[in-house]
């Protein structure tokens, strides 16, 4: 229990600190209202996945043991966090010196707006629904291993202390091998590192902790989308969050939809792609933060088996830009005719 609480705290605090520092380090001078702490949290999670991918690839290429891979990942986590926090502080100091504190004070004032009674009721309803969803994951035992090898791979890495030399389905040495596209996917490495750091069993991490964490992260991703739709209306955002939770509950019958994945396969990379990366991409596109789109696109490549490394996030971006370009041309023609 103690380890579970420690792990949950780590999964809450580390990505938040890393991602917020990353965004502040980059946008310190030009921090716009459109970027929020939620963006920071998601960016931090994606950067963590990127770090896991780096250590996974280096260890695989150099033939290191899995424990060496975990040690490298620990070093990368510490160095990245230290570097980004340092850069963020530097950026903040320079900003305060140049622009003063006025803007910050103004923003704090904006934040201190009190909730209206309608917003209180809606937020209470959201909390109840979220607790119901968490209970649904923890109490019900209808999980699915269908088409996913993440728990087996994590267990195999930890028990053999080697990467991709043992077939995860049988536990015997590979006779021919595994496809290279499969070998570069890093989620089992990240899970293995979390199990090793916090002394948690793979089955507990996969079937209990990660589904709840990913449900929470999905809510954060949908919050960024709500903020993109209604930047000025808190009530709209809250109602949107409630509707999303209801839709998660309703869509759990359907293979591939976010609800199904969150409640039955919350540990799988597919869930992260569909419940987190896609809504985050949409919110970035909606807010025209095109430069940050690289994060979900790369995360998808590191997590999910995609054709030639490009998945739904990339296609979403391409299609969205095409739609925008076409509507501009269409609007221009219409304007010309009138």
């Amino acid at each position: 229990m103690k380890n579970t609480i420690l792990l949950s705290s780590f999964l809450l605090i580390y990505p938040l600190a890393l991602g917020t520092s990353f965004l502040y380090a980059i946008y310190g001078f030009f921090w716009k209202k459109k970027l929020t702490v939620a963006d920071g949290y998601l960016a931090g999670g994606i950067i963590s996945i990127g770090l896991a991918e780096i250590s996974h690839l280096i260890s695989g290429y150099l033939g290191w043991s899995f424990s060496a891979c975990i040690r490298l990942l620990s070093v990368l986590f510490v160095v990245a966090a230290a570097l980004l926090v340092f850069m963020a502080i530097l950026s903040w100091l320079i900003r305060v010196k140049i622009k003063g504190r006025n803007r910050k004070n103004q923003r704090e004032k904006e934040r201190r707006q009190y909730l209206t009674s309608a917003e209180y009721i809606v937020s209470l309803l959201w909390t109840l629904l979220f607790v119901a969803c968490v209970a649904r994951i923890l109490v019900n035992s209808d999980f699915s291993l269908y088409k996913d090898l993440t728990p087996e791979l994590t267990s195999t890495f930890l028990s053999t202390d080697r990467l991709f030399t043992v077939n995860p389905t049988t536990g015997g040495e590979y006779l021919v091998g595994a496809p290279s596209r499969f070998r570069i996917l890093c989620l089992p490495t990240l899970y293995g590192a979390l199990c090793s750091w916090f002394q948690i069993e793979v089955s507990v991490l996969s079937f209990r902790i990660m589904p709840v964490v990913i449900l929470g992260v999905a809510c954060v991703a949908y919050y960024t989308l709500a903020r993109a739709f209604w930047p000025d209306s808190r009530l709209h955002r809250m109602v949107f969050q409630i509707v999303i939770l209801v839709l998660f509950l309703v869509s759990d019958t359907c293979e591939g939809q976010a609800g199904f994945l969150l409640f039955h396969q919350g540990f799988s990379p597919q869930t992260i792609r569909i419940a987190v990366l896609l809504p985050f991409s949409l919110s970035l596109l909606q807010r025209k933060r095109y430069e940050l789109l690289l994060l979900p696109v790369l995360a998808e490549t590191c997590l999910v088996w995609t054709g030639y490394g490009v998945g739904w996030c990339f296609l979403t971006t391409a299609l969205w830009i095409a739609v925008k370009a076409f509507s501009k041309i269409f609007a221009g023609k219409k304007g010309g005719e009138s």
Binding site: P168, T169, V176
Partner: peptide
């Protein structure tokens, strides 16, 4: 393979889940 990874199996889940065959070149 999840709860007791030290145990090797005669055949694994890819025997009855055909979709998992993509993840290994062994047959």
């Amino acid at each position: 393979r999840i709860v007791k990874p030290e145990v090797a199996l005669y055949y694994g889940r890819d025997m009855w889940e055909k979709e998992l065959e993509y993840f290994t070149d062994d047959r």
